[in-house]
Design a protein around this nucleic acid. Structure first.
Lengths: 200, 200
DNA sequence: GTCTCGATATATCGGACCGATACATCGAGG
DNA sequence: CCTCGATGTATCGGTCCGATATATCGAGAC
């Protein structure tokens, strides 16, 4: 799912990894932030897949690299190759390719059958402006259905086992249930808005 | 953190993997449930570390295994070895050891500097009855401080960048903020209760 | 009686993501 | 000049996950 986030941000603007992480954190809140240990490998994957591409670092091209001591010809050549694509502070600025745009669409539309459902939904909603209205509505309603199911299962479990749980676990479960209810109300608000804006 | 959950459940009762998963799901709600792909390797780790131990499967010892066709001596010997520790349906029932009890205490007290903070807190709260009152209060107040900090950071980011975000992202962030506020209120309730029960 | 189906049960595999860590450069301030 | 903190890229080991394979058991169909 990180792919989706990166591609979505690069759609608007060319960025390097570090900046990408900052944008991501402010987009999804300081919770659920992304680590470099995921980000850089993911960028490498996307580059290998031809979905993003390191672009010429615009702005100041940086000083000549102060070659520290004697460099073998090999290393000097490598640095020369890097220089074309790295900015002043060794930045590698990435841009999205056409393949990347296509991949973005695909990921955004995909029924997230896999995994991390909360994270995936939040991410998709953050890029919902790229979806046609009916797909947006579908996303919201699928999410709502999911939460309603969750809630039903939680209530069932509570009815069956309440007496076996101590006060802390009960409070935890109650709070979780309440949070899910509020999530559903919030979704209802968004769905309402969505329908108003596309009535027919 | 899965270790903590497993040890906590085995503290109360000897269980096998499948049952462990069910208990875990009902303890933490149907969200944030644990997969077998984590559970079994984790049980193996704990067994290797001497924190849990496969115990004699009580109840019916199961029928003689209907050895399907010809078995090599190797395989027959292996099955014989397993038989001692597996119940009727091939169940492997685990119990906690003294090392496991010690590990549980350690994990429960540990300042969860690492990782998955939400999950870790929920888990610890679910086992809070094993903590002395002041440690419980510490857990709650550390969590509260964490959320307050989160909230401050989120608000700061919002003030700075609100105009750059579309309506969907804004709604997402607002909802997240509100949820965090409610989490804090909930914690305040728990802290209040805790203080009433141990006033001096 | 036997056949099939769903629940019970254990286990492994590849992959995503994380925290820790290492390393280098830059700018501000002492 | 020098150190310190922010910027910046990258890798490593490990945890957890979903998918999948495999096998047994009990209930109900027929």
């Amino acid at each position: 799912m990180l792919e989706l986030a990166i591609l979505g941000l690069l759609k608007e603007q060319e960025l390097h990894g570090y900046e990408l992480k900052k944008r991501l954190s402010e987009m999804l809140g300081p919770f659920s932030s992304v680590s470099f240990g995921s980000l850089y490998p993911c960028l490498a994957r996307l580059e290998a897949a031809g979905a993003v591409k390191a672009v010429e670092a615009h702005g100041d091209p940086g000083p000549a690299i102060p070659s520290t001591g004697a460099l073998t010809g090999e290393l000097a050549a490598f640095r020369a190759r890097s220089r074309a694509v790295r900015g002043s502070r060794g930045k590698k600025v990435y841009g999205i390719t056409e393949r990347g745009e296509a991949l973005f669409e695909e990921l955004l539309l995909a029924e997230s059958q896999s995994g991390d459902d909360d994270r995936a939904f939040n991410l998709k909603l953050a890029f919902a402006r790229y979806l046609p209205s009916e797909a947006r509505l579908g996303l919201l309603e699928r999410r709502r259905a999911h939460l309603v199911e969750r809630l039903a299962k939680a209530r069932g479990a509570m009815r069956a086992r309440r007496e076996r749980l101590d006060a802390y676990s009960q409070s935890l479960l109650d709070h979780g249930t309440e949070t899910t209810e509020r999530d559903i109300s919030w979704l209802d608000g968004l769905i309402e808005l969505e329908k108003q804006e596309a009535p027919e």
